[in-house]
Nucleic acid binder design. Structure first.
Lengths: 258, 258
DNA sequence: TTCGATTTGTTCGTATGTATT
DNA sequence: TAATACATACGAACAAATCGA
């Protein structure tokens, strides 16, 4: 009989197969693996639930449970009648999922971004720790000033490992017409699914004070933020300074659906 | 035949009943109503899924979907083999669900609490706005100093409406052997399910500086926090000041299960 | 210790509804 | 209109955890 040379590996789960936990967890893992391997592009839907059920030889309900968890984790997005897609880091998604700075009334606004500096360098102590890199590995470092309501409110110092974004470049960054995470996703196949933000109060140094147009030593929010992919690899470290005189970091716990 | 005199109203959903959206949403609403009305005590399990299915005349799967959402919103907790319970605000739950202050290594610790002041008063502008009260409604105000690793790190100024906690009292507060939210729940049937935290940088005033043992005007985290019940009623407003020299507010987005 | 009853967890299959193309 | 895909709802069976007799 003919060998199926170039088809994806047969993922069928045999009835007696030795899967440790529940079946849907195994299905979830395999879906994640396909995601990481880039088998499914970000622009088109992943296979339908019926197709996945056939591929893994499980019921549709089991696939739905697996997909449902990935949707809850904001890795996938379901669209009734259309299909299921990899979450795309467009502006709306970014605002809703990852951006927490609001004005006095609690309203969010997409920030206007201005690149200040861009340089090649090596990981310092702080970024090496957060990015889990050896101390002197190559990184790109760039600084970004974000405006809200026409005024500078947020100053970002960002570091990303060269190993993850090989041909990263000032031109690449400036010419993007999407969010930074959108660029990571579209150009490097790196989808950020998890953030960790360490928030402290700090005093603005000369540079931060000048950029945010506040007094020297003024109290600012300092946020050390790490972004992770599917598999838990840290892909970006960001030091963020926020002028909270007319803005705040809003965190809502135990979200309301109804 | 004998009338079932004291049983709860017949909640059966007739096949042709006019429910606006999906059935499981209607079931969820009714379960929440029973929760708010205090029909199910916090110490014993709510009716089993099979019983609820019968009560509402829907399938077990539909009940499971409704309960599942309430579990995701941390209102209920499922325990295999035992039953489903109202989330109890014990120390572990509080730490895991609502407490975000960690040490340098990211570890959480249950804070030691010391009550500083307790008085009757009337809502000022800020608390009236956050608690959605008229300006001069009666409130209880108390101040609490929290220690971590033996040192004062957090200073709380808390205000709660007298209307919600009628017989609140310094003695009641001091004699509790549980978390503050646990007290709200056990004594007043008020279960907090949602928080909103507005985080800013501020300078410590005299009092805050003295209590946290830091320099006058030192940069501290200031958190304005509102706690809500099931039905969206705000029940507590808390101004919190945090010394972030050796601690941080840690926010993790897009949580990791596996 | 064992056993049986209860409760939630997982998996299957099927049918129907709704949204999109 | 028809086909496709996700959403809802039902029912059934077995597994795993818990608890008390």
């Amino acid at each position: 009989m003919a060998a199926e040379l170039t088809l994806p590996a047969d993922d069928a789960l045999q009835p007696g197969a030795l899967v440790a936990g529940p079946l849907y967890v195994e299905v979830k893992k395999r879906v994640m693996r396909s995601l990481m391997d880039g088998e499914w592009l970000q622009s088109s839907p992943i296979p339908s639930e019926a197709q996945l059920a056939q591929r893994y030889a499980v019921s549709v309900g089991t696939v739905r449970k697996a997909i449902g968890e990935l949707v809850a984790e904001r890795v996938l997005v379901r669209q009734p009648g259309r299909g299921t897609f990899v979450a795309s880091h467009n502006r709306d998604y970014m605002l809703e999922a990852f951006f927490h700075i609001v004005d006095e009334r609690g309203h969010k606004e997409f920030p206007a971004s201005r690149l200040l500096t861009f340089r090649h360098g090596r990981a310092d102590e702080l970024s090496a720790r957060f990015l889990r890199l050896a101390k002197d590995r190559r990184v790109f470092q760039f600084e970004n000033l974000l405006h809200l309501q026409g005024r500078p409110v947020i100053f970002d110092r960002i570091r990303v490992p060269q190993a993850v974004f090989p041909d990263f470049d000032e031109g690449v960054f400036r010419q993007r017409d999407m969010t930074i995470f959108g660029l990571y996703q579209a150009r490097y196949g790196v989808t950020v699914t998890r953030l960790e933000e360490w928030i402290r109060a700090a005093n603005a140094d000369d540079r931060v004070a000048r950029l945010l147009v506040i007094k020297d030593d003024a109290a600012v929010l300092r946020i050390d933020r790490v972004a992770y992919t599917f598999d838990g690899t840290p892909v970006e470290f960001r030091e963020r300074f926020v002028d909270t005189r007319s803005h705040a970091y809003l965190n809502a716990l135990g979200m309301k659906k109804s």
